[in-house]
């Protein structure tokens, strides 16, 4: 479904990605692991077009999308949930969802606000609340929900569990497992290996902007040495 090859991205003169390759199959959850500053966020931003890669190719569903404007990449069917969540703080929950709403494409799942509220019950009770008045966990749910409203074929999740209380993390993991069962393709950037282990089929590990390890999630979770080397845990 998504195929990244030889991707290089720079911020000014600071290079963040050095020739990254990545394959994500249809219906697969791929974990993108690595420490802070390893280049995970930059990779996701490069895919969605918020930063422009200096070199390399990004092919999604058979089409080259590297260098396209962000809104067009999104319309190809890629949803993006940023690390900072970036909820529209002045808009209500319902309005945030309305911004994300787009008619389902060919293989779209036909998300509606009602189905969203089923997936994330807490949101249902706060439809009129302003995004700025929500807790971190609620904002995270809303950020994912808002992206689903666009009926993406694949979503890029940037550190969804970060800064959340353990109870909220569990609820989030449950919701994401539900999404996975429905066949959603996910590229999940995480630092929390346990969280990733629960959801991911395979894992790609980045270090200082390069891919250092690719394989099944189970294999990485079992490889204490690799975890220590690459994640320092």
């Amino acid at each position: 479904m998504l195929s990244v090859h030889g991707l290089e991205t720079c911020y000014g003169s600071a290079q963040a990605l050095f020739g990254v390759d990545l394959e994500v199959a249809d219906g697969e959850v791929m974990a993108l692991l690595g420490r802070n500053g390893a280049g995970k966020s930059t990779l996701l931003k490069s895919i969605i077009g918020l930063v422009h890669p200096a070199a390399g190719s990004i092919v999604f569903a058979g089409e080259e999308i590297a260098g396209d404007p962000t809104h067009r990449i999104s319309r190809h069917g890629i949803g993006y949930v940023p690390e900072e969540r970036r909820i529209f703080t002045g808009l209500s929950v319902a309005e945030n969802l309305a911004v994300g709403r787009r008619p389902p494409g060919g293989s779209g799942a036909g998300w509606t606000a009602e189905r969203i509220y089923e997936l994330f019950p807490p949101l249902s009770a706060m439809r009129r609340r302003r995004g700025g008045a929500m807790s971190g966990g609620e904002q995270q749910m809303l950020a994912i929900a808002r992206t689903l409203m666009g009926n993406p074929r694949m979503i890029l999740l940037d550190e969804p569990s970060q800064g959340l209380a353990p109870r909220v993390v569990t609820a989030l993991a449950n919701a994401l497992e539900g999404l996975k069962r429905q066949g959603m393709t996910v590229l999940l950037s995480e630092q929390n290996v346990r969280f990733a282990e629960r959801l991911a089929d395979r894992a790609t590990v980045l270090e200082t902007g390069q891919v250092r390890w690719v394989g099944t999630m189970a294999a990485f979770a079992a490889d204490i040495e690799a975890q220590h080397d690459l994640l320092h845990v």
Partner: peptide
């Protein structure tokens, strides 16, 4: 209106609006 909601969203965060597939 949806238009108004999009305008308010874009006033806050143009990049995110684009990432949600809206042609600014």
């Amino acid at each position: 209106t949806r238009w108004g909601i999009l305008i308010r969203a874009a006033t806050e965060d143009r990049e995110m609006v684009a990432a949600l597939g809206i042609d600014q």
